[in-house]
Design a protein around this nucleic acid. Structure first.
Lengths: 258, 258
DNA sequence: CTCCGGCCATGATCTGGATCAAAGATCGGT
DNA sequence: ACCGATCTTTGATCCAGATCATGGCCGGAG
């Protein structure tokens, strides 16, 4: 049995196409940050009692950020837990000389900012414009003590992330550039699927540099590998940062070196 | 405040020197597996109530394995949670063609075998002779439901592992061979310190091949880098798989590329 | 004691991906 | 519509670490 069936919102996608103040009206319809956030968070916390939901809604606040905004930096006091309502967030660690490793991309429904320490262990920065729910850490902890079911859900999410982290270690330590890129595309496709979006022309909102820092490569190698995959008819690059996967099974094989 | 202050046993070290049936008597004194396990686990679960401890002790079973034994394989049904009592365990994932990534080395006090799925996501194999506590998954879950404090402790441990996993991703994706080896030695030293052992001539129980598969290198590169560090007087190799660190601060700088 | 099978070290060579360099795209701003 | 800044692609070259190959070491079995 899988304790982590945590339900992503099946509602209309309020994400991605928020390209600043475009002339045409937002096709997805503008949702008021607060209501969107509440809906999202409550969906994530499905299976909770009415009382728990009410109390959760009580403590959450909402914020919006443009693309490229640092939500918090590594080492800052960790006093807030975040949940992504719309958009994409990247979290990364740096070496003193500036080398960067992105440890994850966060999509709507994902939490971040949880820390076992007094301070954040990584930096969080927006990739696209995002809206976020903020949960003050103290009040969140109190709530967790009060409602074991929420604690359990958070634990499941952490376990899930741990499994994903192990997959990523295998990728970083042992896969070739081509396998890394294919794995990455598979991941994006699978995440889209779990969130109830169409999985094939998959949306890739992040830059080549971000992909490189996520996969332990350089932008040049990422770019070359994409064109290589395009040339060998495994994928095709569509406009609007979309990638069309020709054969999902081929891609999966390539991702595992088969 | 750090919710994960989970106390490692301060008792005598029952680990490491168990090199089969040696002629001389075990200097650390042979502890009966069962009692050792109970002590260890109870220490890990410090701050629990007497009732909780009693119930925990009730469900645990103990086992011993020789070096090189597979405790469970990736994909097998995940029905047991393990806690290391003595010895070292490695957990790893494989690619179809045999490439291997070790995602962690587990020391006394560490748990493994937790799964969000029906099956284990990785293989667990002993590095040295080990003794383990087994917790049947069903009964453990029931216990967690009953005692939120235990749930909380497990959550803290998962969060900690997650932070470690992120460090490891930075290492695998962005560090050079020398930085990787230095980071690895620092890690071993710090873990020894937290467990109340002497941190300097640090014990390295695993083979070059295991180190290579943990750091995303080859055995040759690991070997070469060790001799290089030895030549430049950063470390010296002692007998009995011990490594003497000449200057801890130097090593720390080398680990971060400073 | 010697033999054998893992490990470990070290040398020689090769190569995937990094680095260096320089055109095209794309996009926001005026 | 034009311009500069940023991102992406592509080419040429380099090099850290992989691969291939060999010999030494240690520990257990006969």
């Amino acid at each position: 049995m899988s304790p982590i069936d945590f339900a992503y919102s099946r509602s209309a996608d309020a994400q991605g196409n928020a390209k600043g103040a475009g002339a045409k009206p937002d096709p997805a319809g503008e949702i008021h940050p607060c209501s969107a956030c509440t809906v999202r968070t409550l969906t994530v916390c499905a299976a909770l009692e009415a009382e728990e939901l009410r109390r959760l809604a009580e403590i959450l606040q909402t914020t919006r950020f443009d693309a490229g905004h640092t939500v918090f930096g590594e080492g800052e006091p960790a006093d807030t837990l975040y949940n992504v309502t719309s958009g994409t967030v990247k979290v990364y660690k740096l070496l003193p000389d500036g080398r960067r490793q992105i440890t994850g991309f966060l999509l709507p429904g994902d939490f971040f900012g949880l820390s076992v320490d007094d301070s954040y262990a990584y930096t969080a920065e927006t990739v696209t414009p995002v809206s976020l729910c903020r949960f003050p850490r103290r009040r969140m902890e109190a709530l967790l003590d009060e409602f074991p079911k929420m604690q359990r859900r958070l634990f499941s999410m952490a376990s899930n992330e741990l499994a994903a982290a192990q997959d990523q270690m295998l990728l970083l330590g042992r896969k070739t550039a081509k396998e890394k890129i294919c794995s990455f595309l598979m991941l994006l496709s699978q995440r889209a699927s779990r969130r109830g979006h169409k999985t094939n022309p998959v949306h890739v909102p992040m830059s080549r540099a971000d992909i490189a820092d996520y996969l332990g490569l350089t932008t040049e190698t990422v770019s070359r590998t994409f064109t290589q995959l395009k040339t060998s008819r495994v994928i095709s690059l569509l406009e609007g940062n979309k990638v069309q996967i020709q054969d999902m099974d081929d891609l999966l094989d390539l991702a595992e070196g088969a």
